[in-house]
Design a protein around this nucleic acid. Structure first.
Length: 453
DNA sequence: CTAGGGTTAG
């Protein structure tokens, strides 16, 4: 006999059927309570048909039977059938309405759901939350906001606020998150981990130190356990607000640290110019047997770059693939090119690009061109520009940097020629950067400034 | 102790 542990659904059906058999044997077939449960069980297994058979045979159906049936039908995708049953019901309860509204919401039929919602005489918090949740999931924040403002405040609960927070977070509306959090506090509704972490993230984006500090005090006052997620959110918040010392002390107080927690600490130390400390935290990470990932090395290499630790950077770049089996990505190469360029090692940078998969990467050559321009290495600049023009003939930024480089080197004729060439080819001067997003961090390779931020 | 609402958070 075959048995698939992954098929928990099938297993549940089997057990449900066995249970049903037991029910009949023990003479519990007429128990409404048991029958209602079975209807729910069948539809939960996607077998609402069996539930319907049972429902039809029942002699004494109560409101829960009807509601279980409506819920079962819409839950298994039989919206029309659920609606028909709903329409035949003479005595509906709030739950009946909520079941059907939820069915429409889950089916993406928000207009139908809203029609029912508006027809309800009495609504409870679940009615409101179901509707608001439907709008939030479809990113219809305008509609969600309208209902949120109409919702009686006594009915607003944790779920209501988390729904709004989730919606705002999806759209990057961090200020709204903080505002909604304030309203939540005024109504004395206790936030949960989700709320707290979301608010901390919002504080990071807003660089709202005071608000973030308030949240930290709240966590301490209520003795909320600092798990890896919440701790990391705090670390990022303090670091983003410029307070690396407090970020460090939060990190040190964390009981539980996963890859992302370590990555956040290493990255932020690097950003703040604490290169050696970042490397030392990295070595602690290895000691604690948390395997580093690509992001870890982005932080490590970034720290070396910010602090001019050339030899260390080279070493860790090799370590990344040789010891940890990770494949360096464009961001890692970009970081190395920048690191080497800043140390006036343009030949090394060039070699790194050419001996890798990065041969045809615009940001790489852009970084090299920028560095060459800054260091006044015309020859290398021309070399890089040649690659850039081949890879993207219509990108203006390389012409601009090249021309500026010539001017700075006193080669005005060449500078003018480049400008003319640009004009002749109808290339407009644009912003001239490309960016890559990794783990929510925008890595921008600005050709002109040769920076990785 | 049978029916209805949320979270891929850092």
């Amino acid at each position: 006999m075959r048995y698939h542990s992954a098929c928990s659904k099938l297993k549940a059906i089997k057990e449900g059927l066995q249970l049903h058999g037991q029910v009949i044997k023990r003479g519990l077939s007429d128990d409404v309570f048991v029958q209602n449960s079975l209807i729910g069980l069948y539809s939960a297994c996607g077998l609402v048909g069996f539930g319907l058979q049972l429902f039809d045979k029942m002699s004494d159906r109560d409101v829960v039977s009807w509601n279980s049936m409506v819920s079962g039908l819409v839950g298994d995708g039989f919206l029309e059938e659920g609606r028909l049953l709903f329409d035949t019901m003479l005595e509906k309860s709030i739950v009946t309405w909520n079941c059907l509204i939820d069915g429409y919401v889950k089916g993406g039929l928000l207009y139908e759901a809203r029609g029912l919602f508006d027809r309800m005489k009495d609504r409870d918090s679940i009615s409101w939350n179901t509707m608001i949740g439907g709008y939030v999931n479809l990113c219809l924040m305008k509609d969600a906001e309208v209902l949120f403002s109409l919702m009686p405040k006594e009915m607003k609960d944790l779920i209501t606020f988390n729904l709004m927070v989730d919606g705002y977070a999806r759209e990057g509306r961090f200020k709204n998150i903080v505002e909604v959090f304030e309203e939540m506090r005024l109504l004395n509704i206790t936030p949960n981990r989700f709320t707290i972490v979301s608010v901390l993230t919002a504080c990071s984006h807003l660089v709202a130190l005071e608000q973030g500090e308030w949240v930290q005090a709240y966590i301490e006052r209520n003795e909320i356990e600092l798990d890896a997620v919440m701790g990391t959110a705090l670390v990022n918040m303090f670091a983003k607000c410029g307070n690396i010392d407090r970020a460090i002390s939060v990190f040190e107080s964390m009981e539980e640290r996963d890859v992302l927690a370590w990555n956040a600490m290493i990255y932020n130390l690097g950003v703040h110019g604490y290169g050696q400390q970042a490397l030392s935290v990295f070595s602690d990470m290895l000691k604690s047997n948390i395997p580093p990932d690509e992001t870890t090395f982005l932080g490590v290499l970034g720290a070396c770059r910010h602090s001019g630790l050339v030899e260390e950077g080279k070493r860790y770049f090799h370590l990344m693939s040789e010891v940890h089996g990770l494949v360096p990505k464009v961001e890692h190469y970009g970081c190395m090119v920048d690191l080497l360029s800043r140390a006036d090692l343009l030949e090394d940078a060039k070699e790194l690009i050419e001996t890798s998969e990065m041969k045809s990467s615009i940001p790489m050559w852009g970084a090299l061109l920028g560095a060459s321009s800054r260091l006044g290495n015309v020859e290398m600049g021309e070399y890089a520009a040649k690659h850039l023009m081949t890879l993207d003939p219509f990108d203006s930024s390389c012409y601009v940097v090249l021309s500026n480089m010539y001017s700075a080197a006193g080669m005005n004729e060449k500078a003018i020629a480049i400008r003319k060439n640009m004009k002749d080819h109808g290339i407009e001067k644009g912003p001239g950067y490309s960016s890559i997003e990794i783990n929510g961090v925008i890595q921008e390779f600005t050709v002109g400034s040769n920076s990785l931020e």
